[in-house]
Design a protein around this nucleic acid. Structure first.
Lengths: 335, 335
DNA sequence: CTGTTAGCGCGTTCAT
DNA sequence: ATGAACGCGCTAACAG
C-alpha cells in the first residue's frame, strides 16, 4: 500500500513550508522556478496527487459533472454519454451517471442529492416536462444545468434538441409518396416537447396531403410491453393501416412481433418507419425505414454548453440549440 | 439561491452544539430522541444536506465508485452499467464512468487519478489483459477492485465472467449439427481470456467433430472497419466457408455487408452466428443466431462483489464468478 | 445525554 | 520569494 502522500510530507522532505509547496504545485507566480522544480520533481517521484476532498472543500469546486437520464441501456443515451464523456475528459472533469427509469420523483431526489456541492454542473434528459415545471424553474437559478433531448421549454438555460417536427413531417411525406394512405401513429413521449413535436410533424404532413387520421389509428405507449403488443395487434386487425409511424424505438419490436403473428409481410403489406438509433437495426433489417438522431453530437454539444456556463463564456449565445436528424430511406424496398 | 446551510447554523438555531447536531444527524445512540427530532425537523425544513467534500475529508469515504470500461455506447457495457447502478443506488453510492476506448495507457491514467481517495472502489472491464499485468497485480492491493467480463486472471480479487469456452463449444457444435462443414472464425478480444476461451471452445468443437480449420479461415479483428470488411470479403471469396462464427458483435455488420456485396444469401448460402447483446437484432433479423451474455446480471453481480469487499463480507467466498450465456437458435431457418 | 476540542488536507491571507 | 496561521464543514475523541 503506497501510503497516501500529502503536501505536509512534501514540505517536510524539502525543508520548506506547506504554503510554499501548495503554491508551487499550483504554479503560483510567487514561487521561484527553482523551488517549483524541486517540488514538482518530488511530487512526481512520490506519486503525489492532491486529495480531492480537501481541495473541493477549500475551493468549492469538484471538477465533476452529473448526467441524469432515463436509462443508460439505450442506444441513444449511451451514445449521448459517450459524447459527454469526451468533452468532460478534455476539461479533466469526472462524470457521474444517474438513471431515473422515467421516475420523476427519483429524478428530483437525485438532483437534490447533488445540490450540496457534489458536482459543478448537471446535464439532464428529463422524464416528463410537465410534472416538475416549477421545480426546474427554480433549479436553473441554483446550479449550472443543461437539458438535452428531453427538455423543459421556456427555461433560461441551454437546451440541446433535434428537429423532431421537421423530420417527422419529412418522413411522413415520404411514406405518403411511397403510396401509403392509411397511416397509423405509435405515440411515445407524450408529455415531452419531443413527443409532441413528432406527432405534430406527422399530423401536419397528413393534413397537408389531404389525408386524415382518426384516434383509432393512434396507439399510445404503455410501460407494459404486452399492452403495446396487444394494442398494435388490435390496430392492425381492425383498421388495417398500410404504414406504422413509430415515434420511439420501443415500438419497433412489438410492431414486428405483431406483424409476424398476423402474417403481415413487411414492407409489402405494411411499411414501418421508426425513430431509432440502433446502427445495426438499419443494416440488419432492410424493411425498417429509420429516423436517426445525432445522439453522440447531442451529448457533445450539451457538454460544451455546460462548460460554457462553468467558464462564463457565451453568456449571450442562443440557448436553444437544434441539431439535425437523418431520415434513412430504403431504396431497396421502394421506400 | 437557497444559501447553503451547514451544521453550524443548525446548531445556532437550536441552541445546541455542533457536535450534537452532527451526532443527531448520524442517528447516534448517544443522542435523545427528542433532540434528534428537533434536529431532523429543522434539517428538513432548511433543506440541509451535509457537504460531501467535508465529510469525505473527515471520514475518508466517498460513497462513490468508479466504472472503467472500453465504451459505454455498446449494448453489453451499457446493460452492465445499468446493473451496476442499480446496486450502487441500493447502497446510496454514486457512480463515476470512464471510457478507455481500448487504450491501456488511458486506462491506467484513469485509475491513477482515482487512487487519491476520489472513490471507495473500482469496477473495471479491461482493454487487454497482457499489457499491464504487473500494474494490476500491485493495484489490487491498494484499492477495492472487481473485474467484470474482461479480466486479469490469477489476481486475488473478485472476477465476474461468463462461460465463454462452454458456450462457444456448444454453439459451434450446433452449427456443425446444422450441416456446416467449412466454418470460419472472426477473432476478437485476442489478448483477453474471454477471446481466447471463445476461440478454444470453437476450436475444440471443430476438432471433436473431426473437422479442421486453417489460418485462412480466421479473420482477426482490426480497429479499422474497412479492413474487417475487406478481410471478410476475401475470406468469403477465396475460401467459401459455409458458416461464420463471429466472436464479437463488431463483426456482424461487416459480415452482413460482405455477404450482401457478394450476393450470398443468409442463411441459405452461409450461416452466421455471433456473440451479441442487441436485443432487437435477435428479433429484427431472423437469420442471425446469437450468443447473448447476461450483461445486466454481470454488472449487478460485479457491483455486489465490490460491496462485499467494502463491507468486509464474504472474504472467503469463491472470487471467480461465472455466469451463463444463452445460445439463441433459429428454428425458423433450420438453424 | 451533551459539549469542547482537535484535526482531516488544502488554499489563502498576511507577514516577513 | 517564503512561511505562519487560519478555516472550509464535518467527525471523532474525550470530558463532563
Amino acid at each position: 500500500m503506497s501510503e497516501k502522500v500529502n503536501i505536509k510530507q512534501l514540505a517536510l522532505e524539502l525543508n520548506i513550508s506547506i504554503a510554499t509547496v501548495s503554491k508551487a504545485l499550483n504554479d503560483s507566480y510567487e514561487i521561484s522556478l527553482k523551488t517549483k522544480n524541486r517540488v514538482w520533481d518530488l511530487a512526481k517521484q512520490l506519486n503525489y496527487t492532491p486529495n480531492p476532498a480537501a481541495s473541493n472543500l477549500r475551493s468549492n469546486k469538484t471538477k465533476t459533472i452529473a448526467v441524469i437520464l432515463p436509462c443508460v441501456a439505450n442506444n441513444f443515451f449511451s451514445l449521448a454519454i459517450k459524447g459527454i464523456e469526451e468533452i468532460a475528459r478534455k476539461y479533466g472533469f469526472h462524470v457521474l451517471i444517474y438513471q431515473t427509469h422515467e421516475d420523476c420523483e427519483m429524478e428530483i431526489s437525485f438532483i437534490n442529492s447533488l445540490l450540496n456541492g457534489r458536482v459543478d454542473g448537471i446535464l439532464t434528459s428529463v422524464s416528463s416536462s410537465e410534472d416538475n415545471a416549477d421545480y426546474y424553474e427554480n433549479l436553473v437559478k441554483k446550479v449550472p444545468l443543461v437539458f438535452f433531448d428531453r427538455v423543459y421549454e421556456n427555461l433560461d438555460t441551454f437546451k440541446v434538441t433535434t428537429d423532431d417536427y421537421h423530420i417527422s413531417y419529412q418522413a411522413t411525406s415520404h411514406l405518403i409518396e411511397c403510396g401509403c394512405k392509411k397511416l397509423a401513429y405509435l405515440y411515445g413521449l407524450e408529455n415531452l416537447p419531443a413527443g409532441k413535436a413528432r406527432f405534430s410533424g406527422f399530423k401536419d404532413a397528413i393534413d397537408a396531403n389531404g389525408l386524415t387520421i382518426s384516434d383509432d389509428f393512434i396507439v399510445k405507449y404503455s410501460d407494459d410491453e404486452n399492452t403495446n403488443l396487444e394494442h398494435i395487434k388490435v390496430l392492425l386487425n381492425h383498421h388495417k393501416p398500410d404504414a406504422l409511424f413509430s415515434s420511439i424505438e420501443e415500438f419497433v419490436i412489438p410492431s414486428y412481433t405483431a406483424c409476424k403473428e398476423l402474417r403481415l409481410e413487411i414492407p409489402k403489406d405494411i411499411k414501418i418507419l421508426s425513430f431509432s438509433n440502433l446502427a445495426t437495426a438499419k443494416l440488419l433489417n432492410p424493411s425498417l425505414t429509420t429516423i436517426t438522431q445525432p445522439a453522440f453530437e447531442i451529448g457533445n454539444e450539451a457538454a460544451k454548453c455546460l462548460f460554457k456556463i462553468l467558464t462564463k463564456r457565451g453568456i449571450d449565445d442562443d440557448k436553444s440549440i437544434i441539431l439535425k436528424s437523418e431520415l434513412i430511406k430504403r431504396a431497396s424496398t421502394g421506400c
